[in-house]
Amino acid sequence: MEIVVLLKQVPDTESMISVADDGVSIKTVDLKWVINPYDEFAVEEALQIRDADSGKVTILTVGSDKATAAIRTALAMGADEGVLINDPAIEGCDGLGIARILAAALKDIPYDLIIAGQRAVDDDNFLVGTAVAEYLGIPNISMVNKQEIADGKIKCRQTIEGGTVVLEAPLPALFTTQRGLNEPRYASLPGIMKAKKKPLATKTLADIGLDASAVADPGAKIVSMQPPPARQGGRIIEGETAQEKVTELVKLLSEEAKVV
């Protein structure tokens, strides 16, 4: 089984995020960068599928030089190869542009199964994986917390609002991950040593046969960024007894906030 994981490097979720002076991007100094948590589930699932069967796990990333660190971490977890698409034209791409690049790169990488995260916790676009499937003309199942492969088909349990749906698709197919799918392993020390020798290719858009103009004109362009409205937090309800505090709280919720 040839499995490709679409993996993005994102700021650690612990990070405080603030808007840069240009007003359309974030300050990146001092940020710690990690594998997108949903893509960690994708790597883990790919490794488990490979190890139960055979084959290869390839990590595919669109990003800058620093993204090699995320790919190396995935290789240290046990993936076999990495491919980084790194090109100045990527700057300013929207999610669909990234999906177009990934789909173009996948023309040169054999795959039976592609696994992506349901969302990257920076852009929160919820779309790159699904769009890649559309561009490749293969079926996709999103938000999967359980999967089973047999007889050239994949059966996935998808979470929907208030429940789950089970869907089946013939391979090749793509699915996106949901929490509960697995517990990602940590990279072991021997894993980290081995990862240094695993193949990691860097390619430009030209190398994957894509003209920069194909991604130059985003359908969605960020025109401004702002912090969310500040909350007037910090109002502690005082009282002699618990009962007094609660009575006061309910009065405020009903008369002032009008929510109960």
Binding site: S18, V19, I26, V121, D122, G219, K221, I222, Q226, P228
Partner: peptide
């Protein structure tokens, strides 16, 4: 022009659509 929370709601982005 749509407003969407990004970075899990740590920032709000205004996005202009075309197409």
């Amino acid at each position: 022009i749509a407003t969407r929370p990004i970075y899990g709601g740590k920032v709000l982005a205004d996005v202009a659509l075309n197409g």
